[in-house]
Amino acid sequence: MKSKILLQATMPLLLAILFAFVAAAQEADQYRQAREQLVRAIEADVRATSLYLDKEQLNPRVLDAMRKVPRHEFVPQEQLSAAYENRPLPIGYGQTISQPYIVAIMTDLLKLDADDRVLEVGTGSAYQAAILAELVDRVYSVEIIEPLGVQAGKRLQRLEYANVQTRVGDGYYGWEEQAPFDAIIVTAASSHIPPPLLKQLKPGGRMIIPVGSRFLAQQLVLITKDQDERSITQQIMPVRFVPLTGTH
């Protein structure tokens, strides 16, 4: 009799827990589906821009990382509904979280190996850092805007990205103590490529810089350093557009 009463009393609670569990599972599933769709959209864009990327598809590891990282955790509450749209979103402080397609091709262009060390200048929401963290051994990320940097650090901790180390400060001099790096990604605005950053790039390493406004990347500048420490830049337009056709 007692157990019946107990059961009656706890039934609503149990049901509530069950509902919450089901709802969370549904939500997780919903987000997973949204990510899958996003990856498909990126794949389609890559095929369309294959001429400039010199490849038909991105490294599957990069796409897997895009499938895994919960972008909705990196956008402000008011942007939640647009989290899986393939577009940049404002994150406050005049900064944005980049368009997933651009994140994917920038990451791909770095040609990362699992044991690489990567430096990121401009943590922002830390979405890019999380993508990198899925692919390499260690990620170091510097952000100059303090509240953003602090927020990003906490977020990465909460999402258990233990292999990312963040710091608030000036990214011009890179991260001397952790240098050299196999790859560097610079998303913070700079009028030129900081010489100290180039120094911290290993021979054979790659650096990528998106150039343009906060909402539109006009071009990606890829810098490769050869074994003789000479740097070559490559200007990549992330769209399929040939300014001149015909005889040329």
Partner: peptide, 18 residues
């Protein structure tokens, strides 16, 4: 004063001075 502006658009990659 804390973080210098370092404005030098078009600076060569081979530049060493800031």
């Amino acid at each position: 004063p804390v973080t210098p502006l370092r404005h030098a658009p078009g600076l060569s990659l081979n530049a060493v001075s800031e």
